[in-house]
């Protein structure tokens, strides 16, 4: 009897481990397919920064535009005006004081920010095994992917990045960035529209 139970337990463990792996693989595949099919995306966002030391939150609002494969406009409208446009290797930074165009290959910090933002929004950072160690959990209507940075330069900025995917559309609807200090930034994407034409001027870096 004891042997029978042990055998059954071992068998169940193997089955559940395989199911989990398969599930993760399927989720990655669905996200990858959705990312490939997403030619454009535009949405509103609400960014909440929680400051651990001050026990305070600051909320910013803005708009985001994405076009495959390397165009992104991230625009803050309230409470400050700030525009970040990534177009290929160039980044335009626009604030009240000035406009700057930066080559991402020459600026390590912006290269990382651009990479994280782009791959988080699209969701294809799930496939980047070199940069992140990823675990995926399933909850009601959401897949939650926890990404732990593996590279030193990324670890200097983030403790982990958590992506929330809408299961039906396989699209990211929330990004949480947790810093080493415990400060956390949560970006909620709202009114998501995909595959609609976006005016080319939106991504202009000139």
């Amino acid at each position: 009897m004891k042997r029978y139970l042990l055998l059954l337990w071992t068998f169940m463990s193997i089955v559940s481990i395989s199911a989990q792996t398969l599930n993760d693989a399927q989720i990655r595949q669905r996200v990858n397919q959705a990312a490939a099919a997403m030619k454009t995306m535009q949405c509103d966002f609400v960014q909440t920064k929680h400051l651990k030391m001050l026990n305070d939150d600051i909320v910013a609002h803005g708009k985001m535009y994405y076009q495959q494969s390397s165009k992104l406009r991230w625009e803050y409208t309230i409470p400050y005006a700030y525009v970040f446009v990534l177009n290929g290797d160039k980044v335009l930074l626009k604030n009240k004081q000035r406009n700057d165009v930066i080559d991402v290959n020459q600026n390590k910090m912006f290269r990382e920010i651009a990479r994280v933002m782009m791959s988080s929004v699209v969701g294809n950072c799930l496939l980047d095994d070199k940069t992140f160690k990823t675990t995926i959990a399933t909850t009601n209507g959401e897949w939650i992917a926890t990404l732990v940075p593996q590279r030193k330069d990324m670890r200097q900025m983030f403790q982990k990045i958590v992506l929330h995917f809408n299961q039906q559309r396989a699209v990211v609807n929330c990004v949480e960035m947790v810093e080493k200090s415990g400060d956390k930034t949560v970006i909620n994407l709202k009114n998501i529209r995909t595959n609609e034409t976006i005016n080319a001027a939106i991504f202009s870096v000139h």
């Binding site: 960014q47 920064k49 400051l51 030391m53 001050l54 910013a60 991230w74 803050y76 400050y80 700030y82 970040f84 604030n95 920010i113 933002m117 900025m157 960035m177 810093e179 200090s181 400060d183 930034t185």
Partner: peptide, 14 residues
């Protein structure tokens, strides 16, 4: 007590 962070929310200093 003060904190400075960039527009994306990454803390520069406390």
């Amino acid at each position: 007590k003060g904190c400075i962070f960039n527009e994306f929310g990454i803390t520069a200093l406390d």
